[in-house]
Computed example of a mutant assay.
Amino acid sequence: MTKKLYIPGPVEVNADVFAAMSKPMIGHRMPEYATLHASVTDQLQTLLNTKDPVFLSTSSAFGIMEGAVRNLVQKRCANFANGAFSTKWHDVTKRCGIKADLFSTEWGQPITAKMVDDALSSGDYDAMTMVHNETSTGVMSPLTEIAEVMKKHPYVSFIVDTVSSMSAVPIDFEALGLDVCLAGVQKAFGLPPGLAVCAVSRAALDKAKATPNRGYYFDFEEFEKNDLKHNTPSTPCISLIYGLDAQLKKMFVEGLENRYQRHADMAQATRNWLQQQGFGLFAAEGHRSVTLTSGTNDGNTDLEQLKKLAGEHGYAMDNGYGKIKNKTFRIPHMADMTMSDMEEYFSLLEELLPQVRS
């Protein structure tokens, strides 16, 4: 049975996206690909308000997350964590043989500007990593406030994962002073997985050139050389790039402000519904994601059974991640989803909840 996806990635993919992806194949060294590549990267620059390059990587976002630390850590990295994926970034950094320290807060809480400032004030670090929107918990950290304190630490590379927030909330690469801003396309972009995008500052590109042992596949210098020719270092996933081109065009037709508001409206509706059903909200007040909401189990609901029943009805449900699995459950509201999709899912869960509550 094909299930409609109500999980926080990969998300449900619309038919028009698959249609765009089914265009005839072209060679990645042909002029037709250069035209496609330029169209996509130009639109991504507009989306992120930057003139710096935005690279296309045939990989998951974690490929770029690894690449970023390999390119930009020359001394020591500060990894800030408040959930599973931000914590994993510390593990990835260490596995690359890079000196790094983990600064973590409780799951459900945001990374704060004070937390960043306190850690970086030691002078021990030349790079930091953080996840803007922690998908494991539904927490969105205050990126603008953190960017303000990062101005006090201009020699620390500012590396940010926006995997589940890019295109759903405004991210102004220039104004925030980011060095790396990365995302995968399987969440708010509404595409199948397999492609990552990554904006990189001029300062980061120059620093990378002097960093040893940065490898080949995710070498920023290789990306830049090829991007100048509207290309990639290695064979790209051309069908996904066709899909991304179509999705970006659709975003601009909708209007970015309208898109951001649609996501905010779905998020608020989801929070309201959860509380009406007797569930709590896991993320701290004022730091709740606009692309997914993590509900707290009321202690009387068998979320494993609810997930099974939803599956039998043709819906894929999420029942939490990692150490908070079944203590929480996540509801996505991103990409091409609309209020109608949310109401459909709420109706299903309202029908099933009496069967799984004690």
Rank of each mutant, 00 (worst) to 15 (best):
E350Q: 15
H230Y: 12
S201G: 10
F223E: 09
Q276D: 15
A175K: 15
Q305I: 01
L178T: 07
S234C: 02
E145P: 00
E350C: 10
N297H: 05
W89V: 12
G243H: 06
M166H: 02
G138Q: 09
P236F: 05
A199G: 12
P110Y: 06
H132C: 08
D124S: 11
V156K: 09
A113E: 09
A127C: 07
F252H: 13
A269H: 06
S57L: 07
C198V: 05
L182F: 04
S167A: 15
A78L: 08
R262D: 10
G280I: 11
S136E: 06
L281T: 11
S167G: 03
L244Y: 07
G27D: 15
D179K: 11
R262C: 02
G194N: 04
F85D: 13
S104Y: 05
S57D: 05
Y125W: 06
G255W: 11
P8R: 09
P192C: 05
A284P: 02
S201M: 06
I324Y: 14
A175V: 02
V290G: 00
L309C: 07
K229L: 13
H333K: 04
G27I: 04
A203E: 14
V149T: 06
D336Q: 14
Q276V: 02
D16Y: 13
D206Y: 01
A119R: 06
E221W: 04
H37E: 07
Q186F: 01
N213C: 03
E174A: 15
K229N: 10
T137E: 11
D302G: 04
A196R: 07
C198E: 14
S60H: 05
E145W: 00
Q276W: 00
G314R: 11
E304A: 15
R357L: 01
K4S: 07
A267M: 09
V160T: 06
K51I: 01
T235N: 10
G311S: 08
L244G: 08
L44S: 10
T144E: 15
T58W: 03
I111K: 06
L309N: 08
M150G: 05
M140Y: 01
V149A: 03
M334Y: 01
L303W: 08
H37Y: 15
T35E: 13
M1G: 13
Q305E: 14
R288S: 01
G108E: 10
L256M: 15
F346P: 02
S164Q: 07
A147Y: 02
L352E: 12
D318F: 02
K23H: 10
L274C: 13
M130H: 03
L228H: 06
I146R: 09
V11R: 09
G63I: 03
A147W: 01
E351W: 00
Q45H: 01
A188D: 12
K325H: 07
V180A: 04
D336C: 08
E285T: 12
P332Q: 07
G108R: 11
C77V: 04
I146F: 05
M140C: 13
I64M: 10
P53G: 09
P142K: 02
M21S: 05
L72G: 07
R70P: 00
R271E: 13
V185M: 03
N49R: 14
I7F: 13
F62K: 12
P192K: 09
G177E: 06
D302Y: 03
V356T: 12
V131M: 12
I241H: 03
H90V: 02
K152F: 00
L191W: 09
K88R: 15
A168W: 08
L48R: 01
A283L: 04
A175M: 03
T291I: 04
